[in-house]
């Protein structure tokens, strides 16, 4: 039996983590296991004051549990890849490990009053999105689908917290589940 793992760095709020795990379990229909990660200081870039996502993914691969099918990490740290100012998350396409950052999903990041509902809704969508990538889904042209590309929170907010019919069908094929 292989499990979908959701791992968290120490600063991640446990309640939000539990909610995301439940959402992922429902959508991907399998047992989800939790996992504790250390902090991401090794990936910190003092010049950018952000965390590089590539070394984090590399570390996740090293810590990949034997009974894991996929490993999705969540963190409060703001992530980047060198060519971009930030990423909401990153995953190996059709691979084993991915990560979602909660940093920019919070209203506070944009100088607004905290809104838990909005934050949770966004974190579900991004968790589904990156996990979708892990199962080989690419960006979906359907703007409301969780697999559509979001480069702003506005775009995240305008999509649904679910996959469209086409992506669901693809997902079933990739997961080997009969339609």
């Amino acid at each position: 039996m292989k499990y979908l793992y959701v791992a968290a760095t120490p600063e991640v709020e446990r309640e939000a983590l539990a909610a995301v795990m439940e959402r992922v379990a429902t959508e991907f229909g399998g047992p989800v296991r939790g996992m504790e990660l250390g902090n991401l200081d090794f990936a910190y870039d003092a010049g950018r004051r952000q965390y590089a996502s590539i070394p984090v993914l590399e570390q996740l691969l090293q810590r990949f549990p034997q009974d894991a099918s996929k490993l999705l990490a969540v963190t409060e740290r703001d992530l980047y890849i060198p060519v971009l100012t930030f990423v909401f998350g990153q995953a190996q396409l059709g691979g084993r490990v991915g990560i979602v950052s909660f940093a920019r999903l919070r209203q506070e990041f944009y100088g607004l009053a905290p809104d838990r509902e909005v934050f949770l809704e966004r974190s579900y969508k991004e968790a589904l999105h990156e996990t979708g990538h892990l199962f080989g889904l690419i960006h979906c042209p359907e703007g409301e689908c969780a697999m559509s590309l979001s480069t702003t929170v506005r775009q995240i907010d305008s999509k649904h917290n679910a996959f469209c019919a086409a992506c669901t069908a693809k997902l079933r094929r990739h997961m080997g589940v009969p339609a």
Binding site: S53, I54, I81, P82, Q90
Partner: peptide, 17 residues
């Protein structure tokens, strides 16, 4: 010439199909 630059941008674009 920098591997991490190359591979991270490539990975990001692959997610787009």
């Amino acid at each position: 010439d920098e591997e991490v630059m190359c591979e991270s941008l490539a990975a990001w674009l692959r997610e787009d199909g």
